Simulated assay, not measured.
Amino acid sequence: MKKILLVILALVVVGAFAYQFKSVKKSVEIISSAIKTPDLVNKDSLTIKSRVNIPLGFKRVEYNTGSFQEYLRNYELKPFGSKIINYDDSQYFWQSGHVGVLEIPVPNNGLQQCADALIRVRSEYLWDNNRKVEIGFNFTSGHYCSWLKYAEGYRPKIDGNKVSFHKTAAKDHSKTNFYKYLNLIYTYSGTLSLYNELPKINDVSKLQIGDMLIKGGIPGHIAIICDEIVNETGDKLFLLFQGNTPAQSVHLVKNLEDSTISPWYKLEKDAVIPVSNYTFYDSKFVRFK
């Protein structure tokens, strides 16, 4: 009888241990899953830098205060959950590819598409930092159009691929006229002109905030690096934001291919890189001058 009781007691102990081990195993699985797919999005923040947390083992690459890189990294965002809105005030049909919407107005003229949105961001940075002399872009035809010449009253006369500039307007250096100039650039510039005009980045180890992932073409597409982190072995991850066609809210994109680091991206040259609702099949990079 005593022997039977000892056997029963042993079975109870083994069963209890097995149950506890099962619970511990389940807890380990949950913790492991959380580690593998951390939530890197801070929903209460209102800048790119504060909206996205850094994966374990990485740190942000430092840039000088007042630089274009810091300007992009600290760009203001609308509250989390804000929708992507088209130029005509309708909602974009797909709302699952972004983690933030930038505080950039969308003109109702429909001109501010993917390349145009980045042209605007760059131009506003130069304007705000008293570097207006640097504001200028090539038309797709290759002709350069500067803000200062436009402000002095020079306007393009366009005949096919022939472009000439003539003084036909009064001087006007106002911010209102500046946005009229940008509308002109939006009309005659795009991903193709940016790709042909801007310096190429062939070594991805040299990529930095402000560089752009680009498919130059008609149509083409473009997205800009807006944050950068690095680990001890030199591996880098990046955040991207983009405008789109039709003209719509500029938005900080998710990484839909790798949820373990999303919205951070690993970027490679000549690679297939899906970015939200567009895929770059032969990735190239350019940098503003």
Rank of each mutant, 00 (worst) to 15 (best):
75 Y>N: 08
88 D>K: 08
82 S>L: 02
54 I>V: 15
81 G>Y: 02
67 S>G: 07
57 G>D: 14
70 E>R: 08
94 W>N: 15
75 Y>P: 00
91 Q>T: 12
86 N>W: 01
73 R>V: 13
59 K>C: 02
93 F>P: 12
96 S>F: 09
92 Y>A: 15
96 S>T: 13
96 S>K: 07
59 K>G: 10
60 R>H: 14
66 G>I: 13
52 V>C: 06
91 Q>R: 00
75 Y>E: 12
67 S>H: 06
68 F>V: 01
75 Y>Q: 14
83 K>L: 13
63 Y>V: 07
81 G>F: 12
96 S>M: 04
68 F>D: 04
85 I>K: 12
54 I>S: 03
90 S>N: 11
53 N>F: 13
76 E>N: 14
58 F>N: 04
72 L>F: 09
94 W>K: 13
62 E>V: 12
74 N>G: 10
66 G>L: 09
57 G>A: 12
57 G>F: 09
70 E>C: 05
74 N>H: 09
74 N>M: 13
54 I>W: 01
83 K>G: 00
82 S>I: 05
97 G>E: 09
66 G>E: 12
52 V>S: 05
84 I>S: 01
80 F>E: 05
58 F>M: 09
54 I>L: 06
88 D>W: 08
80 F>Q: 01
68 F>C: 11
60 R>N: 13
60 R>K: 15
59 K>W: 02
57 G>S: 09
77 L>M: 13
58 F>Q: 07
94 W>C: 02
84 I>M: 04
87 Y>M: 06
78 K>N: 10
66 G>Y: 04
86 N>V: 06
54 I>A: 07
58 F>P: 01
55 P>R: 09
78 K>A: 12
58 F>T: 04
69 Q>E: 15
71 Y>Q: 07
71 Y>S: 07
75 Y>T: 09
54 I>Y: 06
75 Y>G: 02
88 D>G: 06
87 Y>A: 02
80 F>A: 15
95 Q>G: 00
54 I>P: 06
52 V>T: 13
94 W>P: 00
72 L>Q: 05
79 P>W: 05
97 G>Q: 08
62 E>I: 14
56 L>N: 11
79 P>M: 03
91 Q>A: 04
59 K>E: 15
73 R>Y: 08
96 S>C: 01
68 F>E: 08
52 V>F: 07
65 T>W: 01
73 R>P: 01
88 D>I: 01
61 V>E: 11
56 L>Y: 09
63 Y>A: 14
95 Q>K: 03
61 V>A: 11
76 E>T: 03
83 K>Q: 11
76 E>D: 11
93 F>Q: 10
63 Y>E: 12
77 L>F: 09
70 E>V: 11
57 G>M: 14
67 S>P: 07
79 P>I: 03
65 T>V: 14
55 P>T: 04
67 S>M: 11
